[in-house]
Amino acid sequence: MIYARVAGTGSFLPGKPVTNDDLVARGIETSDEWIAERTGIRMRHLAEPDVTASQLAYEASVRAIEAAGCQPSDIDLIIVATSTPDYIFPSTAALLQARLGITNGGAVFDLQAVCTGFAYALATAEKFIRSGSNKRALVVGAEVFSRILDWNDRGTCVLFGDGAGAVVLEASARPGILATALHADGSHSPILSVPGQINRGVVIGDPFLRMDGQAVFKFAVKVLGEVAREVVEQAGLTMGDVDWLIPHQANMRILQATGKRLGVPMEKVIATVAQHGNTSAASIPLALDLAVRDGRVQRGQKLLLEGVGGGFTWGAVLLEF
């Protein structure tokens, strides 16, 4: 039997942290108290105008490959979860493959599921590995969300940041990923979207992120609780068997409400949203890598990764690290 295990993790945040007070100094009508009380966010990282998602992905990937003890040439599958790709095409995954100097002809592609993107990508890579078609996958979440924010809308612009996180997933004789569940309901797309496009060089519609925060909160807490229980039951375990809950880092209130709904104390929830804000598809691997590197996450522990995002999409991955 072939299984898929996480061999290494990596992450990267661009530039210096931008605090809530820094945003106030830039002219945004808000305050550190207002942002922190409602979201738990204290700072975020914003990429310089010439820094792209593939560059952030590269930095995180190098760290993950090093942690896995392998070489870029050992990677035979790359999946990049992003809503802010470098180009319409080629894929950000192809650009990342080139940056890494990988020339073995392995498959590469982008995956778009917004904030659930990393969970979707990890679950997808696991299927490739378990099929026997691939031996080592690089799974990345990379975002430059600052490019799609309306800096006059304090209800959204203070929430998001840029960054990337990555894992190397490899074939193993021992179980690693224990269960996955992925879902979507497109009827909820109006409550979180970027309702615009480029048509013949002209922006059609609205090119900025728009969100109904209250509706997103209610939906997120509901489905995060449901999908967490789904993967735990699928694996024949209970929530008590989970060592760490690592949710999408959207908002501290969502993290707290989800933990409460699942009966998971906050001491067992990895929360990094204060340090980098909502980085969409990058947030789960960013939180995972931080917890691995600071020693909280240890080999043999059971981790529940879950996300929810525009689409609406939601999903979870239960794994033994």
Rank of each mutant, 00 (worst) to 15 (best):
T9D: 00
L13W: 13
P14A: 05
K16W: 00
P17H: 04
P17M: 04
V18S: 06
T19A: 03
V24L: 00
V24A: 00
S31D: 08
D32R: 02
W34N: 07
R38I: 12
M43D: 10
R44C: 12
R44Y: 13
L46F: 15
L46M: 13
A47V: 08
E48K: 15
A53K: 12
Q55Y: 05
A57I: 13
A57S: 09
Y58P: 01
S61R: 03
E66T: 14
A67T: 02
G69M: 08
Q71C: 10
P72G: 08
S73Y: 01
S73I: 03
I78G: 08
D86L: 02
I88K: 02
P90D: 09
L96P: 03
Q97P: 00
R99S: 07
R99K: 14
I102L: 10
N104S: 12
F109W: 12
Q112T: 14
Q112L: 13
T116K: 02
T116C: 14
T124A: 14
A125P: 06
E126N: 15
K127I: 10
K127L: 10
N134G: 02
A137N: 08
L138D: 13
V139G: 10
G141W: 10
E143N: 08
S146I: 09
R147M: 13
L149F: 09
N152W: 00
T156C: 12
C157W: 11
V158R: 07
F160P: 08
G163N: 13
E170D: 11
A171I: 06
G176K: 10
L182D: 05
G186P: 11
L192H: 01
Q197Y: 06
N199Q: 15
N199A: 14
G201I: 00
V202I: 14
I204G: 09
I204D: 15
G213I: 00
V223Y: 06
V223N: 07
G225W: 00
A228E: 02
A228S: 15
E233F: 03
L237M: 15
L237T: 06
T238W: 06
M239F: 12
D241L: 06
W244T: 07
H248P: 09
Q249M: 12
A250W: 09
R253D: 05
R253M: 07
I254M: 07
Q256G: 05
P265G: 00
E267I: 01
I270G: 02
T272N: 14
V273T: 10
A274F: 05
H276K: 02
H276M: 11
T279G: 13
P285K: 05
P285Q: 05
L286N: 06
D289T: 12
A291L: 04
G295M: 03
Q301V: 06
K302R: 15
L304N: 01
G309T: 07
T313A: 07
T313I: 04
W314F: 10
G315W: 00
E320R: 03
